[in-house]
Design a protein around this nucleic acid. Structure first.
Length: 298
DNA sequence: CCGACTACCTGCCCGC
DNA sequence: TGCGGGCAGGTAGTCG
């Protein structure tokens, strides 16, 4: 589910509730998600103030006042839900008659006390449990195995045609696979790779190295691809992320980018490039679906 | 080192 | 209506 735009949307939804709040209690309903929770996880987190809610690639980062960062990944099916005690919540116990509405697969609850004194709960739900939570000192995050070899962010000033050229030079791997590789570029997933390639009219089967000149400089096609990657990510963030099936934003509403997919999940439907209209094909590359137009993507 | 493949887990959708 | 198979946004480990 969640690629960079979805994670960024979640980050923006969580920030007003979590930033500056103190974790009164961290409730873990099972010992693990995809991996075991960190040792002493609840003990270390409880009582800590959340200094900021950040993001790197598809990871959410909670900076704690004690210098630790909680690293959270949503896997394929993870989502967060906010429950806020709006009325008279400065009086503890007022809502004791209301049973917490726990749903299936609610694995983690952050019980928060905000600066205003209001209480809120942030609940992590993940049916498939491919998500995970790790902890690492904030100052050494870049050294963590997860981030050590991670590629450039497609937002901001980090990604550039030169950076992509360097990462793809000499690669015989299909362009599709290269773009999914988080060491090449961080945060792209199956949907936005398909969309960026369609916008760039580039075949997912082309060798990644074919977009780099002998000199190591990016070709014009790679410049175009870099531009479209940035644009498709920016468009999706602006739309509040896409949402397939089970993905919801923290306020429970659906993302709308899904309505504007040009290639992803459109097998058999007409290509939307001006004057094309040929059916979108679905192929499998390294075990995952690729959607593209064989007529205009070369 | 690289690239291909598999495992992890539940839910949904489709065809029979 | 029920059941089995295939598929799903991601990552990490193994194997050649």
């Amino acid at each position: 589910m969640p690629e960079l735009p979805e994670v960024e949307t979640v980050r923006r939804g969580l920030t007003p509730v979590m930033e500056g709040a103190t974790v009164q209690r961290l409730e873990l309903r099972r010992p693990d998600l995809r991996f075991p929770f960190p040792d002493q996880f609840a003990e270390i987190v409880e009582g800590q103030k959340i200094v900021s809610v950040g993001r790197r690639a598809k990871y959410l980062l909670l900076d704690l006042a004690n210098g630790q960062a909680i690293i959270m990944h949503l896997g394929m099916s993870g989502s967060y839900r906010i429950e806020k005690d709006v009325f008279g919540s400065t009086i503890p116990g007022v809502f004791h008659h209301e049973k917490p509405r726990l749903a299936a697969h609610d694995h983690v609850t952050f019980h928060l006390v905000q600066k205003s004194g209001e209480t809120a709960r942030v609940i992590y739900n993940d049916p498939r449990r491919f998500g995970f939570m790790l902890m690492h000192p904030r100052a050494e995050l870049d050294e963590h195995p997860t981030f050590k070899n991670m590629g450039a962010e497609p937002v901001g000033n980090v990604l550039s045609p030169d950076v992509l050229a360097k990462a793809m030079a000499g690669k015989g791997t299909p362009l599709k696979s290269a773009l999914l590789d988080q060491r090449v570029i961080a945060g792209l997933g199956n949907i936005y790779v398909c969309e960026a390639l369609w916008r760039s009219r580039l075949s997912p089967k082309r060798k990644a190295g074919s977009l780099v000149k002998q000199s190591g400089k990016p070709t014009d096609r790679l410049m175009t691809l870099e531009k479209h990657i940035r644009e498709v990510i920016a468009d999706a963030i602006r739309a509040g992320g896409s949402s397939l099936r089970d993905h919801t934003q923290t306020d429970g509403s659906l993302g709308y980018f899904q309505h504007s997919f040009a290639a992803y999940d459109r097998e058999g439907e007409p290509c939307r490039h001006e004057g094309c209209g040929k059916p979108i094909k679905r192929i499998v590359q390294s075990g995952r679906s690729t959607f593209y137009c064989a007529s205009c993507q070369r």
